[in-house]
Design a protein around this nucleic acid. Structure first.
Lengths: 228, 228
DNA sequence: TAGGTTTGATACGATGACGTGTCAAACATT
DNA sequence: AATGTTTGACACGTCATCGTATCAAACCTA
């Protein structure tokens, strides 16, 4: 077994203490902090100015770091956007899961709580929301994989909530997955529109419409649900 | 004769024929042709390389024109993308309307025919499809208005087809419009995914899933439809 | 305290796009 | 044929960004 991950570069860090401590923190800890600060700065800037209008220099200035540390952490601007997107996506997913658990019993309450969690998150964190819903699309072409994987988690969540209520004659898995993607797409699209138009629509209206859409899809799939 | 010192109005061509003919075409006709060639070249390049990777110089070279004529027709790269998007959007909309009319009687056949028209168009014109579904998003932030207007036409089409079958107790208009947007969003999202993943999914699968989703939404709205 | 490392600020060359300008050749009109 | 317009090719200056390099000061270890 070797020491964990101490290979910053081809340096003589070997015969020293190997810690590389500075300002009270270890080398890896400092790297992590810089990484985090860069992502936070990127979210602030990209989430307000847009990705196209945000340069690496700006991100570094916002983070209080220099380009050296940017290239230490990321290969290019897109890499940072992807990292930010992953972090945001995970945060939203966690928030949705928490909201869903809080309304664990009733399936309809679960749907409503999860949708509310989405729009609450987007309203409370506009920068994150803009990145998650709009700015990430700027690199979507190159990112079928990354983007797809994150969306896949939301689809999986939807399917996990839905599957227990599916009828014995379950639909064909491929079609079910497409339908689940379509459902996520509906939320995504309405959220995009909501953000792009300055959050004008009342949240309750959006959630209510989505609940009806989900109800319709659920009924189409033969889901057994208590009458509204 | 001409008084040489009064050419402040560069376009007057005062007592000349006023036609400005060249190569057999009038001045306005030539301008229109150049405009069209630039858009066609832009569609070819942006639709294959992506918007971010396509420069004005490339578009001019592809169109066989020079930058002078680009700036004669458009103010910047975004303007051309928007013009291309509008043209593509209109073409798809026309194609959908034609397909819908061909199956005028049966509402379900109309839905299916319209959806087929969408995916046929995207498959037959990949460059147009990529612009319509993906590249336009690169400027969506600045384009809530343009983008929204085009989408609005699709929503209007969906509502026009749907309204005759709505029950007497029609849903609240605001909610109905959101739901219609959600339905369009579903198609949009699945189409985006289809393009971004290389058209791997069978068209029939996508259309079938969308028909089911629309069926579910329609039933949720209380639409009276012949049993499948 | 001495010697090496980490940090931050800035400098640098390269690149590519933008938007405008120049100029000769092709063309139309008289 | 003569004159003015339109065209196309290219040149030019500007600007911003990228990615790397330099160097002194701050800091840790011994």
């Amino acid at each position: 077994m070797k020491t964990s991950s101490e290979n910053t570069t081809a340096k003589s860090a070997s015969r020293r203490s190997g810690n590389g401590a500075y300002a009270g923190k270890s080398a890896t800890k400092r790297r992590q902090e810089r990484h985090h600060r860069l992502i936070a700065a990127g979210i602030r800037l990209i989430g307000t100015q847009g990705f196209a209008a945000t340069s690496i220099d700006q991100i570094c200035a916002e983070a209080g770091l220099t380009k050296r540390y940017f290239y230490e952490a990321f290969g290019n601007r897109e890499d940072l956007l992807i990292a930010a997107y992953r972090q945001i996506s995970q945060a939203l997913l966690d928030s949705m899961k928490r909201a869903a658990e809080a309304a664990h019993e009733d399936p309809r309450a679960t749907i409503r709580a999860t949708l509310n969690a989405v729009f609450d998150y987007l309203a409370e964190r506009p920068a994150e929301g803009r990145i998650l819903m709009l700015e990430i699309l700027a690199v979507r072409t190159q990112l079928g994989r990354v983007y797809g994987n994150s969306i896949g988690q939301f689809v999986a969540l939807a399917l996990a909530f839905t599957r227990p209520f599916l009828p014995s004659a379950e639909p064909e898995p491929a079609e079910l997955e497409i339908i689940a993607h379509g459902a996520i797409g509906t939320v995504t699209y309405l959220a995009q529109r909501w953000i792009a138009t300055g959050y004008q629509q009342p949240r309750e209206q959006l959630v209510a419409a989505l609940v009806r859409i989900f109800d319709g899809i659920g009924r189409e799939l033969g889901i057994q649900m208590p009458a509204s």
